[in-house]
Nucleic acid binder design. Structure first.
Lengths: 121, 121
DNA sequence: CTTTTATGATTACGAGTGTAGTCAAATGGT
DNA sequence: ACCATTTGACTACACTCGTAATCATAAAAG
């Protein structure tokens, strides 16, 4: 079960959006959201390769990083883990909590309704 | 923003269910689910007091531990944080992911429907 | 009263994380 | 041909976490 830390997740997001970048391109993609040096980005990339979340492909002098862990798989697993830990595995209490904290917009509620309509089919 | 680790959360759960216990009672309450020594439990309790999630109240030679951080507040915040980090703040994609991974039972779907009905009012 | 036990305080220690520095090889500009 | 830059490999270091051990003290038990 590959565990991905908060900082590592930011790297994964970049590569899920645009797979097969070099280290400096990843760094650049994060320039606005994260104030990391290129070394930090490279450390995180290496750790993700070690963990098996990324693979590398030689491209001349550098590597291209490609996602081995797929976004949907990871997010589904993470959501499940979170709900198990926090809400004993039930999704409804989670939504109820969000609603309480005004964490649900009208748009969210509309989206959820639509989704439930499809799920019932 | 009080951060609570996985092991610490188990302690909080015990005290949310039954506030104001002594260290050995917390240890006992966890005996079945966690294979921790009483020292480990006491370390976790101390850390939670340091973080401000618990307060202590002298009871003779020992402390009674009481929750300062309320369950609903914490869970609402944790849910919000998780969804922000993972799903850019939208709840619907989270539910969609759970559905994909067959993480939603029919009961869950029924619960959600009921909840949405109430939210729309 | 003395020995055991429960309790809180303090300390420990390895793994994981955030954040980077150093080093060496390869490449590109001049 | 040489120097600056890029890149990956290796190393660093403080902080959190999981998991506990040690120590001092107070209380309970004999």
């Amino acid at each position: 079960m590959i565990q991905i830390s908060k900082a590592e997740l930011e790297i994964m997001k970049v590569l899920w959006a645009n797979d097969g970048l070099g280290a400096s391109e990843v760094h650049e993609a994060l320039a606005e959201s994260q104030d990391w040096t290129s070394r930090t980005v490279k450390t995180l990339l290496s750790r993700l390769v070690d963990k098996g979340a990324l693979t590398t492909e030689q491209d001349g002098r550098r590597y291209l990083y490609k996602t081995a862990l797929k976004e949907g798989d990871y997010k589904t697993r993470a959501a499940r883990q979170f709900i198990d830990r926090m809400f004993s595995g039930r999704a409804a209490p989670l939504i109820a909590h969000l609603a309480d904290g005004r964490g649900l917009t009208d748009d969210d509620i509309a989206d959820l309704e639509k989704l439930l309509g499809e799920l019932k089919k």
